[in-house]
């Protein structure tokens, strides 16, 4: 069944290398994700990752497990993990969202520690999608 997972984490990659490293990760992930039926979006801003992953349950869980075994992340917080009706990022094998600053400021998660997790969920994903299409 189609599931969607959204998490937030802090990046341990030095800011100067963050852009290049993220681009590399995405380039490598795209092909593998397409094969596994994974779509989603990744946002990097202020040293924080915000990523939405959607796909078959087992694949989503496997990808999240890899992320949680990755020391480039810190303070991983799971914001949403639930069955989904349809894909919000259909056709994207993990796209990079460019409008970090503008978009992040609109997100309930952007205010650092103690941000409430509940209001996130699907509306966030929709926002992420909107941010992408307007680009």
């Amino acid at each position: 069944m189609l599931h969607r997972l959204v998490y937030r984490s802090r990046s341990t990659i030095p800011p100067s290398e963050a852009e290049a490293e993220t681009a590399r990760i995405l380039a490598r992930a795209s092909g593998a994700n397409a094969k596994r039926g994974i779509t989603g979006a990744l946002l990097l801003a202020d040293g924080q990752f915000l990523q939405a992953i959607e796909g078959p349950l087992a694949e989503v869980e496997a990808l999240f497990e890899r992320i949680c075994s990755d020391l480039r992340h810190r303070d991983v917080q799971l914001l949403e993990f639930a069955p989904a009706e349809d894909r919000l990022f259909a056709g994207w094998a993990m796209e990079r969202i460019d409008h970090e600053d503008e978009l992040l400021s609109r997100l309930p998660l952007a205010d650092g520690e103690g941000a409430p997790a509940e209001p996130m969920l699907a509306p966030l994903a929709a926002q992420l999608a909107a941010g992408r299409t307007s680009a």
Binding site: Y7, C68, S69, L71, V76
Partner: peptide, 17 residues
């Protein structure tokens, strides 16, 4: 530190968190 950090991250298993 690293061991504790990775262990306390959430686990998504069979649809459970």
């Amino acid at each position: 530190d690293r061991l504790i950090e990775v262990a306390r991250r959430p686990y998504a298993i069979d649809g459970h968190v």
